[in-house]
Design a protein around this nucleic acid. Structure first.
Lengths: 341, 341
DNA sequence: TTGTATGCGTTATCAG
DNA sequence: CTGATAACGCATACAA
C-alpha cells in the first residue's frame, strides 16, 4: 500500500502538484491564494500526507539531517553529549544520525562518506585527532562541521571542548593542597587534543608548584580501563613512588583501581586518584572517585547550536569554545601516607 | 563541486548510463560484456564515483539502512546491544540509524515515521510495551521488524529477549540458599514484558520455595535509580522487614543502595541486593553488585540476524528467541542478619 | 550485449 | 496566482 503522494493531494484539492507543493511549504505558501492553500492543507490532512524526504533530498540536495560521529557509544561520556545535540537539533527541525567508528579511521572514513552521500546538512565529530587528514579535507571542501570534546590542531575548524587545562590545574592543585609532592599523570593517547592539553598542563602546573618532577607522565595507548591498568602497573613497576595520580579520564582512573587492587594497595590510603569527565556511577564506586566534571550535555547542545549557526551563515569565522569544568571531590583523594624514617 | 555521477562515469567509459549502471551493480554485471564492464569499473574508480543512495532509494524504495529504536542511550544496557546489531548488519551491507525515544510514545511515533519515510528496510525496537498500538499497526502493515530485549503480548511479532524468568529464578534461589526468607522484588514498570515476567516469576518462585509471602512486590514507575530509591524507601517505610531484594534491573538496585545509605543501613549486612542486566562498573561498586547477566551483545546480533532473515524471507513464521542468562555472584549478597530473640 | 525511454516524488523555473 | 515542464541520479522494462 503506497503512501499518499503530493500528486494525490493535489488531485484531491483540484490543483496542480506544483501548487500543492507551494501551499504545503510554509516558505512558499505566500505565493498561493489563501483559499487554495487551505484546500490543499485540508486534503493533505485528510489523506495523511507525509512528504517523501528522499525525493525532497534528491531535488534539494539537503536532508534536514545531521551526522554525529562518535568513537564509541559504550563510553558513557558520549550518550549525554548525543542527548544535548539531539535536543537542540530536533527543536530546529533536524534529525540526528549517530554512527560509531569504533576508534577506527577507515571505518570513520567510510561512515562519513556514507553520511555525506546521504546529503547530511552538517556533521558533528567527537573523533578528532590533532592531525586529521579527513577533517582537513572536509574543511577544504567547505563541509559544515563542528568538533565536540576534542579538537584538531587547525584553528580553522570550529570546536566545542571542555577547558582541559583548567581541569588538570584543579586536579593537581587539589592533590598538592592535600600535601602530595609526587604526582603522576596517566595520559590518554597524545594524538588527541584532550590528552595533549591535559598532559602539557600537568607538566606546567607541577613545575609551577615546585613539586617533585621527573617526567611522571605515562601515556596510555587507549582511553580504556585496561590501558589505565597497564599504565599504572608500569608506573608502579618502575619503582617510582607516587602518592597521587591524575588520570587522563575516568576509565583510565578505573584501571588504576584495578592495578592497586591487584597489588593489595589501597586508594586513597596509599595512592590518591583523580579522574576526568565525571561519568555516571563514580559516586558509588569503592572509593567514590574524585574527578573533573565536564558539562556533557552543554558540550552537545553548544556544538549543535554552533553547527546551526554555520549552516545559516556559512561565512562566519570559525570559533573555538571552551566550556567550564569543575572539580568534584570524593573519597579517592586524601592526604598522602606518612613516610617512615 | 558536484559529486561524480553515473552519467559522467558512463561518458568517461564511452557507454550509456544504463550500461554503466549494469556494470557497476554486481547483480547485473553478467548482463554486460566483460571488457565493457572492466572499462566502466576503471572509469568509476578513476573518478572516485560513489553511487548516490538517495537517488537509488527513490528508485528502488529500499535504502540498505535499518532503524534502531532505543528508549534511552544513556542507559548502559543499550550501547552494547547497538554494537551487536551494527556488527551483524554492517557485515551484511546495511547502515544502522539509531534514534532515542526518551521513553516518550509521541516521540517514538514521530521517529519511527521519520525512519519509515526514509525507506529503512527494517526496524529493531528496544522500546516495546506489552500493549503497543504502534507496533501492532506496523505488524498489520507488514513492516519488517524485530523486538529486542522486550516483547509485546502479541506472539505475531518476532523478538529476542533474555530469559527473564530464569534470571529471577536464579536470583531468588540464590538468596534463599543463603538463608533469606523475607525477600522483596522491586519491579520495573509492569507495562513491559521484562518487568512483568520478572515480577510474576518472582511470585511463583517465592511460593514454590515456601518463603514468607505477602505480596512483597513494589512497582517502580521507571527503570531508574531514582525510582528504585523511592520504591525501596516505600518498602522500608511500610515496616515490613525484608532481608533480601531482587531488583527489576541494575539501576533500580543502585537506587536501593541510595535508600539504604540514607538510613545508615548496610548492604549486605542488613539487606542483600541482586540486580539484573550486569551493566558495566558493577564490579567496582561498594559493595560489588550481585546481578543476573544477560548477553547484551548477542541480544543485538541475534536480533539483527533475525531481521535479515525476515527481510530475505518475508513469509517466515515469527519466532521468539529467549537468550540464556546467568547469575554473577558478588558481595552485595550474604547470609541474612541473625534475628535477636 | 547495449541503448532508449520512463518514472521514483519533489521542487524550481518559466510561462501564462 | 497557477499550471506546465524539467530535473535531481539512478534502475529497469523494453526495444534494438
Amino acid at each position: 500500500m503506497p503512501r499518499t503522494t503530493l500528486r494525490s493531494v493535489a488531485q484531491a484539492a483540484g490543483v496542480h502538484a506544483a501548487t500543492a507543493s507551494r501551499a504545503l511549504n510554509p516558505e512558499t505558501r505566500h505565493l498561493v491564494n489563501a483559499d487554495t492553500a487551505r484546500r490543499v492543507l485540508k486534503a493533505a490532512e485528510r489523506l495523511g500526507y507525509q512528504p517523501n524526504p528522499i525525493a525532497r533530498s534528491l531535488k534539494t540536495a539537503r536532508s534536514n539531517t545531521i551526522g554525529l560521529v562518535v568513537p564509541d557509544l559504550t563510553n558513557p561520556l558520549f550518550p549525554p553529549i548525543a542527548r544535548g545535540i539531539e535536543e537542540v537539533l530536533e527543536e530546529a527541525g533536524y534529525s540526528v544520525w549517530i554512527v560509531n567508528t569504533d576508534h577506527d579511521l577507515a571505518r570513520e572514513q567510510a561512515l562519513v562518506e556514507s553520511l555525506r552521500s546521504r546529503q547530511v546538512d552538517g556533521l558533528i565529530l567527537c573523533t578528532a585527532h590533532l592531525s586529521h587528514p579527513l577533517i582537513e579535507k572536509m574543511r577544504d571542501e567547505g563541509v559544515k562541521m563542528v568538533l565536540a570534546n576534542r579538537r584538531t590542531d587547525d584553528p580553522g575548524v570550529p570546536s566545542v571542548t571542555p577547558d582541559d587545562a583548567h581541569g588538570i590545574d584543579l586536579a593537581v592543585r587539589h592533590l598538592a593542597g592535600l600535601g602530595h609532592r609526587r604526582i603522576a599523570h596517566l595520559a590518554g593517547p597524545q594524538s588527541t587534543s584532550t590528552a595533549l592539553t591535559r598532559a602539557r598542563t600537568f607538566r606546567h602546573v607541577v613545575r609551577d608548584l615546585g613539586l617533585d618532577d621527573d617526567g611522571l607522565v605515562v601515556e596510555c595507548a587507549q582511553w580504556s580501563e585496561r590501558a589505565g591498568a597497564e599504565a599504572m602497573n608500569a608506573l608502579l613497576d618502575s619503582g617510582t613512588s607516587v602518592t597521587g595520580v591524575t588520570a587522563g579520564n575516568d576509565l583510565i582512573a578505573l584501571g588504576c583501581y584495578d592495578a592497586l587492587d591487584e597489588r593489595g594497595l589501597s586508594c586513597p590510603d596509599d595512592v590518591s586518584i583523580v579522574g576526568f569527565n565525571n561519568i555516571p556511577l563514580l559516586d558509588k564506586l569503592h572509593p567514590p572517585l574524585t574527578t573533573v566534571a565536564i558539562p556533557h550535555h552543554e558540550l552537545g547542545s553548544e556544538a549543535a547550536r554552533m553547527l546551526l549557526d554555520y549552516i545559516e551563515e556559512p561565512d562566519r569565522q570559525p570559533r573555538s569554545v571552551l566550556l567550564p569544568v569543575s572539580l568534584i571531590t570524593r573519597r579517592s583523594t586524601s592526604a598522602p601516607p606518612q613516610e617512615n624514617g
